[in-house]
């Protein structure tokens, strides 16, 4: 049910440009080629900034690090600089490992309960592998797309592109990342559908994000390998958008508009969805703080006085028994 609603939503997003652009005139092409992408980019940028600022507006009252290794205490005990950082450099390393290598997900285990009862914990790296493959491929694909926006094509883009097309299979050359991204997304999707626990916790939004991303990658592949859309025209559109002199060349086909529209939708959806984990991971206090709360005082901006029980009140209540027990008193 949740799955179908999401699938339906993405299908609508595909059919919309399909019907409108195919039957519409120049103004419709302008709408889908220029206006919608601009709106997408604007919503994306402002949305992300808004969300990050919105998070940052709330303070971090306590230093609640999740420590995953030995603390720094005595000089002869080796502390874990990355898993339990006591310097800002350690935190930086920890965050880099987290963001670039998905360190925490790498720990993943799967529990098995056998008769007895007997519990066993096996390493389960599939989610980590698929997650990492997906995110890295997406990044590379994203960077590759710079060639449609910049003239001359930046050097690093050419390098990435050459590496990505290293195997020189097919014409146009098949990019490895195109395959990886689809395979990884498919795995993540199947996992969500077939692992009962994961299906149980899934919301429509979880499927929607997956279908949207699958729609984008597949439409991109279709545009490139099957319809072989006019690359020159696409580049004209891209550079035009970037230089704020947009033109929509007549040579661009409908399939490309579908791809572009889905990307625009993703951009608009991104800041208001769980996809914001991209920004959130940097702000997660359990990972981005130094575990030095005993060495350096952490300030809570809203720390307020509370009602406490003072020693005087305590002694007033227990003076007699304290005296009888021979305990020293403040007031005899």
């Amino acid at each position: 049910m949740k799955l179908f609603i999401s699938l339906l939503a993405v299908l609508v997003l595909i059919i919309l440009p399909l019907i409108l652009v195919a039957n519409g005139g120049d103004s419709i092409r302008y709408l889908f080629g220029v206006i919608v992408p601009y709106v997408g980019i604007a919503v994306f940028l402002f949305g992300i900034i808004y969300r990050v600022l919105h998070w940052a507006r709330s303070p971090v009252p306590f230093r609640i690090v999740t420590t995953c290794g030995q603390q720094r205490s005595l000089p002869w005990i080796k502390s874990s600089k990355l898993e339990n950082p006591h310097t800002i450099w350690g935190v930086l390393g920890r965050m880099l490992l987290e963001v670039l290598c998905f360190r925490s997900l790498f720990r993943n285990t799967k529990v098995e309960l056998h008769e007895g009862p007997k519990l066993a914990y096996g390493a389960d790296k599939w989610l980590w592998a698929a997650g990492l493959a997906f995110h890295w491929s997406l990044l590379i694909i994203f960077l590759r797309h710079f060639k449609y926006f910049a003239e001359p094509v930046p050097y690093f883009v050419t390098v990435i592109q050459n590496l990505d097309g290293f195997f020189q299979v097919g014409l146009p050359i098949l990019y490895i990342t195109d395959i990886i991204v689809v395979v990884a997304l498919t795995y993540i999707f199947l996992r969500r559908v077939f692992v009962p626990q994961v299906r149980y916790i899934s919301l429509p939004a979880d499927y929607f994000a997956l279908f949207l991303l699958l729609g984008i990658t597949i439409s991109g592949i279709v545009v490139r390998y099957f319809f072989k859309t006019d690359i020159v025209g696409v580049k004209e559109l891209g550079t035009g958008l970037l230089s704020f002199h947009p033109v929509v060349p007549a040579s661009i086909g409908v399939s490309f508009f579908i791809h572009l529209f889905l990307v625009s939708c993703l951009l608009m959806y991104f800041p208001f969805s769980k996809l914001m984990h991209m920004g959130g991971v940097f702000l997660s206090p359990t990972r981005n703080l130094v575990n030095n709360s005993r060495a350096k005082r952490h300030i809570n901006p809203w720390n307020y006085p509370v009602k406490v029980h003072t020693y005087e009140e305590y002694e007033d209540e227990f003076r007699e028994v304290m005296r009888a027990a021979g305990l020293p008193l403040e007031k005899e």
Binding site: P61, K274, S284, P285
Partner: peptide, 14 residues
């Protein structure tokens, strides 16, 4: 009061 709560409410990918 708590950035942690705000962030944790928003970014879980399930």
């Amino acid at each position: 009061k708590y950035r942690s709560l705000k962030v944790f409410m928003d970014i879980c990918v399930r």
